[in-house]
Design a protein around this nucleic acid. Structure first.
Lengths: 201, 201
DNA sequence: CCACCATGTAAGAGGGCTATCACTTGCTAA
DNA sequence: TTAGCAAGTGATAGCCCTCTTACATGGTGG
């Protein structure tokens, strides 16, 4: 029952997913490999295949976990942002930036094109729940239609993903930008997006 | 002198860069490889190494070309946008989205972290010129300081890069979003960013 | 108690990529 | 005309990756 076992790991499946986030945060999706995750855990490179039939199924599980955790982070950030619906939606951008910088698993991982082929009910459920949460936050701003909600969500995620990508690419490294500073800027930008005509309504 | 030569290619160096953009647009930086570019041109996998000492030097040349072309596209878009400085800066987002979707070479390629190691005066000059152009467009909006210009540029690029990334990741595929539609949304979002308090000034 | 089975390992096939090396081709300058 | 050089080629070493196969281990239910 100890956390570290000799031969039988205990819960290698969960450990693989967790280690995958570390690898993604450090090396990015570009250098992600099943072998590297196994190496990081000190198990053989064949071990992961006892839990996932192939690389894409591991990525699918990572996507599901990321969608669940990101959704939790977003919900928490929105609640911490106060009652104003626009503030709550803008807070999503901050939560997104922090989550992506910490885990390396943004929308490019969660909604990776290759995953559509893979039937994984857990992932589909989690990604759908994430999107529903986002749309609910958008809807609360009093937008006139579902289509408008979608546009709000897209814009918020776009600005957040842009800031997160530029950060992980080292674009702000020279200017001494910290994660927190970038997250704040992302929130401010998202907030500005949601106030196109503050004089009107 | 014909465009297609048998043994000696004519200008393989330029052809490699051009083919690299096609590959980047189709497969992304993730699946980019020197071997694949050579294959695409029908030359041996050793041929590129006659023109670039290694993979990173090819990527550096790609970065330089992308910076030059993106800068041209941005300048043209700004000029087409009319006299309003905010409109001109917002137009950058549209040009960026279109360029990245067409070539696959956005800021993640132009300012890729690994390239800092490589001394390539052409690239450094082109990337600096690109940044200067962006900062000039930001400065023209009447922002109070250089630091503010930087923030405007970052925000504009972030939203554009976010939209472009989501598009190339296939995120809009389901909603039937075309490049043009996404580019327009990116411009609208960027424009909204630049009008935080239209009542004030 | 012990047989079974989930879960690990070692070894390796098969494939792609980077980069090098010796060799070949053919343009060009003297 | 021809020597020399720039720019190709084929072959290959070396690396890492994905995934498979046969075998090892040890927890657990009967």
């Amino acid at each position: 029952m100890s956390a570290v076992r000799k031969y039988h790991h205990g819960d290698l499946r969960a450990a693989l997913i967790e280690a995958s986030f570390d690898l993604l945060a450090e090396a990015g999706l570009q250098r992600f490999s099943v072998a590297a995750v196994a190496r990081r855990l000190g198990v053989s490179s064949a071990a992961p295949y006892r839990h996932f039939p192939d690389r894409d199924h591991l990525l699918s599980a990572i996507s599901a976990t990321a969608a669940r955790d990101l959704r939790a982070a977003i919900t928490a950030a929105a609640d911490a942002a106060g009652p104003d619906p626009a503030d709550r939606l803008a807070a999503v951008a901050g939560a997104y930036v922090r989550y992506v910088v910490r885990t390396g698993a943004g929308f490019h991982v969660i909604y990776a094109a290759d995953l559509y082929k893979i039937p994984d009910d857990t992932r589909r459920e989690q990604t759908r729940a994430l999107m529903t949460t986002l749309l609910d936050l958008a809807s609360a701003t009093g937008s006139p239609s579902y289509e408008e909600d979608v546009l709000f969500v897209e814009a918020t995620i776009a600005v957040a993903h842009g800031y997160a990508s530029l950060f992980t690419d080292g674009f702000f490294a020279r200017n001494g930008g910290t994660v927190d500073a970038i997250a704040v800027r992302a929130v401010q930008a998202a907030r500005a997006l949601l106030a196109p005509s503050p004089a009107g309504q």
